[in-house]
Nucleic acid binder design. Structure first.
Lengths: 240, 240
DNA sequence: CCAAAATCATGCTCAACGTCACATTTTTTT
DNA sequence: AAAAAAATGTGACGTTGAGCATGATTTTGG
């Protein structure tokens, strides 16, 4: 894509860098300087932003849109590791250490990215040590989530895993609704399956089951209405 | 145990803090100052150093010994998340953010610990920004490992998971041996099972299988001689 | 708004892992 | 060194999730 046009009132004028938590300790003048370093780029749904095994030379910050980070196994299956949305960053690992990416990153929808070049980023890191602390916080959050994922995949029933992921989505993407919480799913059934290490069919079956139990209500393929959150929480705690 | 006596030539004199990678950017004088902040403590096999759900007020650095970090599920199962050995640290998360621990940490053998109090650690972090970078590096290594674990648990056959863990142990604990690599296992079969989300019996069976195939040779319960590393690598790559 | 393509639901079958039981071996304790 | 405790190996069996096939539904693109 390369030559996407971001209608960037939201960037230079409103200082998009401010929305990003890792820069939250900086004042407006400092943010302005950072804004000058930023390159904007757009990606269409399905485009790859980062290729597994290749080196990365910028920090990617999502201005708008969503991406998934995943790995491919030989037999064509994929394991999704992270879902990134507005305000999230990625690519940091290759900048801190000099290594190729562990995973590919793909746009799940039209996505606008702010890029900071490796060199600029490292200068920033030296000038503003607080940024390192913020990044550390975010890394810790990711560790938390992965630890949860490992526990879930290691000790919980399949129904519990599906329930967990629905709860995660409810918290992250859910919006209030007269009869519960309306969730706009960021992934297809197959995507969900690849996120929690199951097959498409199993996810379908377990979601149908939850619907039969009156816990959720499916609305087309991309929307789920969560009717009974506490029932879902109980289901998510069930050990195998 | 509390009143353990560390015969600490290895500490003040030889500057045990130097062995620890997060302090590697400091000079001897700075290390001396840190050494003064350190409190030594010993734990017997089976003792808990950190309790899941409780707050932690020190950084733990292993001087000698090994620990496992794990979570308990309601039904008494446990999921092991990390194995820590000499030079590794833990408890950092509760110091960076103000949260209770996500996991318990238990000594797998007699273990000697260097403790740095929360307050002292935060002062150090301010004085020496390089420490933050080192910690960040270590957090990234943990993310790498957890990402691998998630991929393995999500997409690989059970035999591949067992093979993976044996390879991990070979790299970390293996010693050269005339006929291959001798591995001193840090965990029992049940421990291994809890590390990769399987049952004791399944681990037993798969290891017996690997032995029948001539890939490994079991020597008592705690020793495994790896005879054919490349066969094990091939097995570890097998998708489900 | 319609047609084509993609996604999803669901029934059936099979292999595999978990569970339970028990014998055996290894390790620890006294 | 003997006894007790813990860990391990292994068989039988049931459950369940994966694989495959097919029809239905939803989404997409013109």
């Amino acid at each position: 894509m390369g030559k996407m046009i971001c209608n960037c009132d939201s960037c230079h004028n409103k200082l998009c860098a401010r929305q990003i938590s890792i820069f939250s300790s900086l004042d407006d003048q400092q943010l302005m300087r950072i804004a000058d370093l930023i390159i904007h780029k757009g990606y269409k749904k399905g485009e790859l932003l980062i290729f597994e095994g290749e080196s990365v030379n910028s920090l990617f910050i999502i201005n708008k849109g969503q991406t998934k980070a995943f790995r491919n196994t030989q037999d064509g299956r994929e394991q999704i590791l992270y879902l990134f949305s507005e305000g999230d960053f990625f690519g940091e690992r290759s900048l801190l250490r000099d290594e190729v990416s562990n995973y590919s990153v793909e746009a799940l929808e039209e996505t606008h990215i702010c890029l900071i070049h490796k060199h600029d980023f490292q200068v920033l890191l030296k000038e503003h040590p607080d940024i390192a602390l913020k990044i550390m916080e975010e890394l810790c959050r990711r560790l938390d989530r992965l630890e949860n994922t490992v526990e879930t995949m290691g000790t919980r029933t399949v129904e519990a895993r599906v329930s967990s992921v629905l709860l995660e989505f409810a918290d992250k993407y859910g919006k209030p609704h007269p009869r519960g919480i309306m969730i706009e799913l960021p992934l297809s059934r197959e995507g969900i399956a690849n996120y929690i290490g199951l097959t498409r069919e199993t996810v379908s079956r377990k979601m149908s089951l939850l619907q039969d139990e009156g816990v959720i209500e499916m609305n087309g393929n991309k929307k789920v209405l969560l009717l009974d959150r506490s029932a879902l929480e109980r289901a998510a705690d069930r050990a195998s």
